[in-house]
Amino acid sequence: MKGGGLRIYAWLYLVFLYAPIVLLPIFAFNDATIIAFPLSGFTTKWFAEIPNTPALVQSVQTSVIIAVITALLSTILGICAARAGAKYRFPLKAPILGFIMLPLVLPEIIVAVSLLVVILALGLPLGGWTVVLGHTLICTPFCIAILNSAFANLDPSLEEAAFDLGETAWSTFRLITLPLVMPGIVSALLISFTISLDEFIIAFFLTGTEPTLPVYLWGQLRFPQKIPVVMALGTILVALSVILLTIAEIFRRRGIARAGGKDTGGFL
């Protein structure tokens, strides 16, 4: 085995990374209201309580709707930007694309308060759609980053070949481009869905009377007796995230294999 010391360090680091996540199911199945050791016994009652908490169910619904719309919007915007970046030369290309990517390096609190100021100044009501607007803004750069590699791996002569063989610009896009970048599109949808579902600060500022799941959880963390239910819910969310991400990763790899490219690893 190469890198003995490093290998030990790497495993310790993984322990550090996974420490909080491992605790989640432990306390979710622990039969005690207080989140501390020693454990007192096994129970599934915290999971059973989830559907009996209407506010929680409501917030999950709100979050899922927001996340779905955000995923669709930001992926469509991401396709436009990635396509323009890969295929065309146009004036001010770098500044325009750079500006679209800006939310990636902007503290979220800034995005949140600036949107809040404008929405309040225009006298518009806060609600699910304002959260969607904010989430789409921060998810689009992630979609672009994923889709950029999908579009960049696409050999431009593939599209020319289809055109040369008699297809129109639109049917070329449908028959060649879309199938080849589809894995990228699927992983962009999943990633933006996951980010939106988990995002707190923007939702906290821009949500109306119907809180999203993280905003609801934030409220619950102050009440110790509610925390085991939060743990149960968190366990389900972790499981779901892992499943979604595994699917996204499989699609991404298949996409790279399909376009004949080399795996350079990772979404970011």
């Binding site: 436009c80 295929k87 065309y88 030369r89 146009f90 800006l102 939310p103 949107l115 803004l137």
Partner: peptide
């Protein structure tokens, strides 16, 4: 070519302009 590129990049660019 430039106008096609600008047309393509317009939706995300306008979005970022209006909301950022």
């Amino acid at each position: 070519e430039a106008s096609r590129g600008l047309l393509m990049v317009a939706p995300p660019a306008l979005y970022a302009l209006l909301l950022l």
